[in-house]
Design a protein around this nucleic acid. Structure first.
Lengths: 200, 200
DNA sequence: GTCTATAACATGATAGAC
DNA sequence: GTCTATCATGTTATAGAC
């Protein structure tokens, strides 16, 4: 049984990342959640801003699990990266370019206009970078190289979502994947490693 | 002498890219432009949407000139890319992470909510890609390689603006520059070229 | 805790004097 | 073409019955 609060969070997450923070009204959110209007201010006394912050932090942590889903099963670093961006292409096609990053739309909107929400987006990105850095160790990458590659991967993914969703083309996402593979290959060559999954 | 219409466009450009399309009110725009409220609907009978479209197309073409500013003077491809992302770092620092891409904020906001504005952002990105592809020919890159590298560059730049502005750190922008250099080096090696500027 | 009515305000847009 | 007053609507938030 899904609680009212969770339904409000889920509805907010979808509406915020599609229409933006300013572009989404609180009535729209409770309506989509099938929740009474008063419940919003019962569960989120801080109003729209508190809801926005919770939505960012919650969906940010949910998407963190996607890293495991595609990188962990891969036999080596390169095919892990390829699987990750192939999944990005699939998301674009399967949702008709509707879905992308759950954070970026709001992140750009609030970067200079709302410090509470900006901090929430920054915390999510920081968590993603730290988790990716840790995860890439399974392919033998030392911390510094793993961090650089993770940031490069997120950079390219975020930028590709902007271009691909705007242009309604998978080309930018495909190019992004190939680019990150280039970066990974250069790193591996520099380290003299093969990028195969390490024994536990 | 700056016309009223131009001042409205300039004010709209700044406010839209900072606060987003939904987050910016038309009254806010005319106030910043020092223009009478009625002038907005005189010059833009289509209202906020027509203004938004004009702002996107106009500032998109203005930023196109920045490609020339940093890539053209470079003696070779690699140092051109480095100069470009160094400029990105400077913009972040000099504006205290306020300025970024004039299109991306609105692009994510309207990608699935306003087809007129989405098309405008797509046309701008397409123009950037085409212009970059053409410009990179001065370093000897054939069209296909030039297009791939241009998309990779814009991907990384856009994503780095998202992360850097959110986290208030230049690290993502610096990583982005190094990553695109990796991609360029791989392309040059594959083509057997040196990336030096070609004679006219 | 659920739900509704409504307050207080901001929004995009328009009418019409000048 | 400039400028102001105003409309209708949508916004966030609150009060208070149940």
């Amino acid at each position: 049984m899904t609680g009212t609060k969770d339904r409000i969070l889920a509805a907010g997450s979808e509406l915020f990342r599609h229409g933006g923070y300013s572009g989404t009204g609180v009535k729209q959110i409770v309506e989509k959640a099938g929740a009474p209007f008063g419940s919003l201010y019962h569960f989120f006394p801080g109003g729209k801003e508190q809801l926005g912050e919770q939505v960012l932090r919650t969906s940010g942590m949910e998407y963190l699990q996607l890293v495991d889903l595609f990188l962990t099963p891969a036999p080596d670093l390169i095919s892990g990266i390829e699987a990750y961006f192939a999944a990005g292409v699939n998301v674009l096609l399967e949702t008709d370019y509707v879905e992308g990053c759950p954070i970026a739309t709001v992140a750009l909107e609030v970067a200079t206009t709302n410090e509470v929400l900006r901090k929430a987006t920054a915390d999510v990105f920081t968590a993603w970078i730290d988790a990716g850095t840790e995860k890439l160790a399974i392919f033998g990458l030392p911390p510094e190289a793993a961090r650089t590659l993770t940031i490069s991967l997120i950079n390219s993914l975020e930028g590709a979502f902007v271009l691909s969703r705007s242009m309604r083309s998978t080309e930018p996402m495909a190019v992004a994947g190939a680019s990150v593979v280039d970066v990974a290959r250069r790193l591996l060559a520099e380290l003299g490693q093969d990028g195969k999954k390490q024994a536990a």
